[in-house]
Design a protein around this nucleic acid. Structure first.
Length: 467
RNA sequence: GUGGUUGUAGCUCAGUUGGUUAGAGCAUCAGAUUGUGGUUCUGAGGGUCGUGGGUUCAAAUCCCAUCUGCCACCCCA
């Protein structure tokens, strides 16, 4: 049998893991610094918990788990695979699924453990999620999300904090980014304003493509989705004010002002609320000292596909004006959801959160060569194995490790050359010789593998000679 | 889910209009003074040419299907 792994999944080598852990550790450290606490949830959830939370497209991308045992039991006798509706069939043969994100399982967790939680509850969670998407560059079927959410607080200061966290993480990692924000209330209000309150998602996803396909493309898409000419014109009056947004040349602030004037004319409370929220957040950052390293941008076309967002939405992309990155997809996203816990029986609890896509961040950092070089190895000192004398290494190894110096003993009494090759392969900085001669003299011969320099040091002074 | 593209040794790739036993470099392993590597020399192992069919006297090469990677759409981290 030829060994292989499922499409869109990957193995990670030691070299890759060191770098991946660097990303995880950085994010974890920032989260903890802001008072977020860790939780974990199972890889699989009840299918029912997940279905219907991510939109139609999302449902399709959920990995369903076939029931154990005789999963065909209890199916109708007249079952025909060609005529039976697939969604119906799924319900019968699958009751569990791999989690699609960390936010919905978190909402479930909050409701289930509500009596043990003090609100507002700030938690972080770093775990893999699975999506049955078709793989591409930066798109995997198994990938890690690093989430932080605050649940049980309406304050916009949470949004402000989360955006600062985003800035802090990417500053630490050295990735130049643009943080884009918008507000779903505006989009919802617009949908109501043009008389299609239930089509907010369609409007949002069409607008989301403004950058890519331009005004005319958005018009076409809306027409295809059944919007009338009047509705589209009304919409344009609000969002696409003046020509093409992307070509308009207005600064972000100016653009926002245009919107607010237009928005006020709609007399829509929802729109005004959304615009005020956006403006509040933006103004917080305008007066922030010291200012953020990352650019923050109000983007009226930002939509985000997930169904559960109701307020602020956030998306982070690599700043291609500051780097040579080819990456255009988002590497972090998030937003506010006013009633995600409601579906699980706990209404009126608002939450807001963000999620870093660790795998995409890794790809970007690799592309931009942002990983520090010292990450190649994890062992600092290798003791050469001379057979009988090997046991004399143990006390020294213990001491080194106590001092935080990663060290190891070669397991076999192999030829020196082979052991040296091993050290080179792992890019180990020092090799220690402790053979019969050294034991007799009470010393260790320490060799610097970069300079080739060798010196005899007393066993007690070993640590001082290692940087 | 739709459309396109790709696949030869662990890695990077050669391989003529279909024509003997499919090659190279790097890597690996073994040896060249039995306590000194990253430079050198010698040798070895390793491929059902992604997989399964088909056309042909003959297929890595042509045709079909399938899988994987990649690209666009869709959507997203």
């Amino acid at each position: 049998m030829k060994p292989s792994i499922p499409k869109g999944t990957r193995d990670f080598s030691p070299q890759e893991m060191v770098k991946r852990n660097y990303i995880f550790d950085t994010i974890r450290q920032v989260y903890q610094g802001h008072g977020y606490q860790p939780i974990e949830t199972p890889a699989m959830e009840n299918l029912e918990t997940l279905m219907g939370k991510y939109g139609e497209e999302g449902d399709r991308l959920i990995f369903k788990i076939l029931n154990s045992g005789n999963y065909l039991e209890g199916l109708p006798d007249d079952l025909s695979f060609t005529t039976y509706p697939l969604a119906q069939l799924t319900k019968h043969i699958s009751e569990k699924a791999l989690r699609y994100d960390l936010t919905v399982p978190f909402a479930r967790y909050v409701v289930q453990h509500r009596n043990d939680i003090t609100f507002p509850f700030k938690r972080y969670q770093i775990q893999p999620v699975w999506r049955a998407d078709r793989p591409q560059k930066g798109r995997y079927r198994e990938f890690y999300q690093c989430d932080a959410d605050v649940i049980g607080s309406d304050s916009l200061l949470n949004e402000v904090e989360l955006i600062q966290i985003i800035d802090e993480v990417f500053t630490k990692l050295g990735v130049p980014v643009i943080i884009k924000i918008n507000n779903r209330k505006i989009l919802q209000g617009i949908a109501e304003y043009i008389g299609k309150p239930d089509r907010m998602i369609d409007i949002a996803t069409a607008l989301d493509k403004l950058d890519k396909i331009g005004t005319e493309g958005v018009r076409d898409e809306l027409r295809q989705k059944g919007f009338s000419k009047e509705q589209i014109e009304k919409l344009e009056g609000l969002i696409l004010s003046q020509n093409d947004y992307s070509k308009s040349g207005h600064s972000q602030v100016a653009l926002l002002r245009i919107q607010r004037e237009n928005f006020i004319n709609t007399n829509s409370e929802v729109i005004k609320l959304g615009a005020d929220e956006l403006h509040y957040i933006k103004s917080m950052f305008n007066s922030l000292h010291p200012p953020m390293y990352s650019k923050i941008q109000v983007d009226p076309s930002l939509a985000r596909g997930l169904n559960y967002y109701t307020g602020t939405i956030i998306e982070v992309k690599v700043d291609n004006t500051k780097s040579a990155s080819q990456f255009t997809s988002s590497i972090c996203g998030g937003g506010r959801y006013d009633d995600l816990t409601g579906i699980f029986g706990l209404p009126n609890v608002s939450g807001v959160g963000i999620s870093f896509g660790a795998d995409r961040i890794y790809d970007v950092m690799e592309e931009l060569k942002l990983f520090p070089p010292q990450f190649i190895t994890s062992t600092k000192v290798l003791f050469i194995n001379f057979g009988e004398e090997a046991k004399h290494c143990f006390p020294l190894l213990k001491e080194l490790r106590k001092a935080g110096i990663n060290s190891e003993l070669y397991p076999d009494a192999a030829k020196i050359k082979k052991q040296m090759d091993y050290a080179n392969g792992k890019q180990i900085a020092y090799v220690a010789f402790l053979g019969a001669e050294e034991v007799k003299k009470g010393i260790v011969k320490l060799k610097n593998m970069v300079t080739g320099e060798e010196k005899e040091v007393a066993t007690g002074d070993l640590i001082q000679h290692i940087q």
